[in-house]
Design a protein around this nucleic acid. Structure first.
Lengths: 130, 130
DNA sequence: CTCTTAATGAAAATGATTTTCAATAAGAAA
DNA sequence: TTTCTTATTGAAAATCATTTTCATTAAGAG
């Protein structure tokens, strides 16, 4: 299935590339409106979802249940404050122990949830891969 | 503010204590219905939220945006499969490196989000503590 | 220039969770 | 035990970010 270049897609990508504040879909939409670029809110959501699926953009959901987006640049993980809902970039050190991060960011062990892919699904998905 | 003992609260706690499958609010609600215990769905949500606030229960949200709950027992973290939405308990080793977990559960660095409390909020909250 | 269909956008739908508020009941006080 | 306060419950309605629908628009291949 071919992919077409559209001003809407271009705008979302450029907007994300130039900022580092993990904006929401609404913030990107408002930027587009301010700049008199015609994009509907729905399209922002659709474009963001596609970018996330492609792996070009990552999605961070804060505890107030709002999705934030970040252009994937390098090796950092995201720390989210449950109180102020701010998102912090944290450099990923491959030698870093989980216990160190837990201590530094006041994380409760019971609150740690990591999203990935279980072995069974990994096997199945590998087969399905073209 | 005093806390009252109710059959609704008791049921939710007992239900969570005896099971290890990270149920949703709806699953707990259905169990109550099956056992002819009168509890409204809303109350399940309210009770669960309170238990989470108290730290007795933890909440795990899968990628299909549904909250699951787990009675806090010991030191384990949760791994969630983005494909089948299954939740796995993983023993927490204080010496374990993040990179090891990442490899074992097919986690992308860009997808790692840890929820805790930033230093500024930690300070403020400490003051507010009674 | 044409034509196919990918992409858009407005409105409506979704769906888990939260809010509202009147009714109920826990448990302290009399 | 009875009374009384108010914590708790529950049904219905509201919320709200996000998704779906489907008719319209426009990329870009031929």
């Amino acid at each position: 299935m071919l992919t077409r270049k559209t001003k809407q897609k271009e705008f979302v990508i450029e907007n994300l590339k130039k900022r580092f504040d993990h904006p929401t879909a609404l913030q990107i939409y408002n930027d587009a409106k301010d700049q008199k670029i015609g994009i509907g809110e729905v399209s922002i959501y659709r474009i963001l979802n596609n970018l996330v699926k492609e792996g070009a953009v990552c999605k961070i959901v804060t505890k107030d249940n709002v999705a934030h987006y970040d252009f994937v640049r390098g090796n950092h993980i995201h720390l989210v404050c449950n109180n102020c809902n701010q998102i912090f970039d944290k450099e990923f050190g491959s030698d870093e122990k989980l216990s160190k991060i837990i201590k530094d960011f006041h994380i409760s062990i019971q609150d740690i949830v990591l999203y990935g892919c279980c072995n069974d699904c990994a096997k199945t998905l590998k087969k399905t891969d073209k």
